[in-house]
Computed example of a mutant assay.
Amino acid sequence: MFNVFPLSKQGGPSRFEDEKEQESDSDAIKEMPEIPNETKKETKYEKEINKKMTPFLVAARNGIVEMVNEILIKIPSAIHNTNSRKENVLHVAVKYRQPLIVETLRSIYKHSKPELWNNLILAVDVEENTVLHLAAEALGGDKPCQIAGAALQMMWDIKWFQV
Rank of each mutant, 00 (worst) to 15 (best):
M1P: 07
N3L: 03
V4C: 01
F5N: 04
L7Y: 00
S8E: 03
K9L: 12
K9E: 06
K9N: 06
K9Q: 06
P13Q: 08
F16E: 05
E17K: 14
E19L: 05
K20C: 06
E21S: 15
E21R: 07
Q22C: 07
Q22W: 09
S24T: 10
S26T: 08
D27E: 15
A28V: 07
A28Y: 08
A28Q: 14
K30W: 07
K30N: 13
K30Q: 12
E31V: 02
M32W: 12
P33T: 14
E34M: 14
P36K: 13
P36A: 12
N37A: 15
N37H: 13
E38H: 12
T39G: 05
K40M: 13
K40R: 14
K41T: 15
T43F: 03
K44F: 13
Y45L: 08
E46I: 08
E48T: 12
I49C: 11
I49W: 04
N50H: 04
K51M: 04
K52D: 15
M53L: 09
T54Q: 03
T54K: 04
P55C: 00
P55G: 07
F56A: 01
F56E: 03
V58P: 00
A59S: 08
A60W: 00
R61K: 15
N62P: 00
N62L: 01
G63W: 00
I64P: 00
I64A: 02
V65D: 11
V65R: 04
N69M: 01
N69H: 02
E70Y: 04
E70P: 00
L72F: 01
I73C: 02
I73L: 00
I73P: 00
I79S: 07
H80D: 02
H80N: 11
N81I: 03
S84C: 05
R85S: 12
R85A: 11
K86W: 12
E87W: 07
E87M: 10
N88K: 05
H91M: 03
H91C: 05
V92M: 09
V92K: 02
V94I: 10
V94W: 02
K95L: 12
P99H: 08
I101H: 05
I101K: 09
I101D: 10
V102W: 01
E103R: 14
E103G: 07
E103Y: 09
R106I: 02
S107H: 06
I108W: 04
H111A: 10
S112H: 12
S112Y: 13
S112G: 02
P114I: 07
E115C: 03
E115A: 10
E115Y: 03
W117V: 08
W117T: 13
L120M: 15
L120P: 15
L120I: 05
I121W: 15
L122Y: 09
L122K: 14
V124K: 15
N129V: 09
V131N: 11
L134D: 06
A135V: 04
A136Q: 06
A136I: 05
E137N: 11
L139S: 13
L139E: 11
G140R: 05
G141N: 08
D142Q: 07
P144Q: 10
P144E: 11
P144D: 10
C145N: 14
C145Q: 11
Q146W: 04
A151Q: 10
A151S: 09
A151F: 06
L152F: 01
W156V: 06
W156G: 03
W156D: 10
D157S: 01
I158E: 04
K159R: 04
W160E: 02
W160N: 01
Q162H: 05
Q162N: 04
V163D: 00
